[in-house]
């Protein structure tokens, strides 16, 4: 493995800090300089050019990086953008970008912290449901782009002897997210889809939402499980063995016969796989 030339390391650190406004918050390994100092130092490393000055070249990169990251947020969070308006969203995105470096070559990985950022973002405080709408949009985006997953292996499941059924840990789809909110965020989301034909009025005093966001093959879905299914989904998501889950739901009120729900879930696609410890050994 070749070692990078040391002058290349120094130059890339300097360039990054001069170009990227949030480099100050970046990895602790990066030597931090005040932005103006890094710009001044970079200027001494740049060949003067007839037609394109240092300031213009620098601004071209600064603008390009900011544009790419803010556009990524706009594409992932179109409903939030619509709720606050494009100008507000653009200004808010610039604040976010300055605080959150991108950690992946894939721009689809950028913006995971926006929901918690919005909770602290004072100018958006008048829309208390906004962070949860952002959580819904992020979950939708991740489910939409999740890697394909093969369906449940019925043959392997059928081969498990009955005395071991209690040890099976059923898995929800890899793409799935369970999201609860005090606000009817699924209605807000639906009312702000480009193809929405129904009323754009959402009564915020309506009940909140308990949502399963996931992808069924090519279709990204927002399902609304009933209360019993919601509790059961949480138990499956926590990875408990099937026997434990059955016992837990028989003890509580109202009781739920998990064994009768399971085939329904399998049919819906909510059960995507399973683990059993004996088979893994």
């Amino acid at each position: 493995m070749a070692t990078p030339p040391s002058e290349l390391r120094e130059l890339q650190n300097l360039f990054y800090q001069a170009i990227v406004p949030h480099a100050q918050q970046a990895s602790p390994q990066i030597a931090k300089l005040p932005v103006q100092t890094s710009i001044d130092q970079l200027a001494t490393q740049i060949r003067s050019q007839d037609n394109l000055g240092f300031e213009q070249g620098l601004a071209a990169y600064q603008g390009s990086v900011m544009g790419k990251l803010t556009r990524a947020l706009e594409e992932i969070y179109p409903v939030c953008c619509r709720l606050v308006g494009p100008e507000f969203f653009a200004a808010m995105s610039r604040v976010y970008v300055r605080q959150h470096p991108s950690r992946s070559p894939d721009l689809g990985d950028y913006g995971s912290q926006l929901p918690s950022f919005l909770e602290q973002f004072e100018p958006a405080a008048a829309l208390p449901y906004l962070p949860d709408v952002a959580r819904l949009e992020w979950s939708w985006h991740r489910a939409f782009n999740a890697m394909d997953q093969p369906g449940l292996d019925f043959q392997a499941l059928g081969s498990i002897p009955q005395e071991q059924w209690g040890q099976i840990r059923f898995e929800l789809p890899h793409s799935s997210v369970l999201l609860a909110s005090r606000y009817p965020i699924h209605r807000i989301w639906q009312a702000n889809q480009p193809d929405n034909a129904e009323s754009a009025q959402v009564n915020l005093d309506q009940a909140g939402a308990q949502l399963l966001i996931w992808r069924d093959r090519l279709e990204t879905r927002i399902d609304l499980p009933n209360e019993a299914d919601w509790q059961l989904l949480q138990a499956f998501a926590a990875g408990h063995p099937f026997g434990e889950i059955c016992a837990q739901f028989l003890d509580q009120e109202p009781t739920l016969d998990v064994a009768t729900r399971l085939p329904v879930w399998v049919q819906r696609g909510w059960i995507a796989g399973f683990l059993i410890e004996d088979m893994d050994d």
Binding site: Q12, I19, S27, K68, P105
Partner: peptide, 16 residues
């Protein structure tokens, strides 16, 4: 190049 210490700026920067 487009990253420093795992921070990406998702743009295409020139090399010396």
């Amino acid at each position: 190049w487009s990253s420093v210490q795992g921070d990406y700026f998702n743009d295409l920067a020139p090399l010396p």
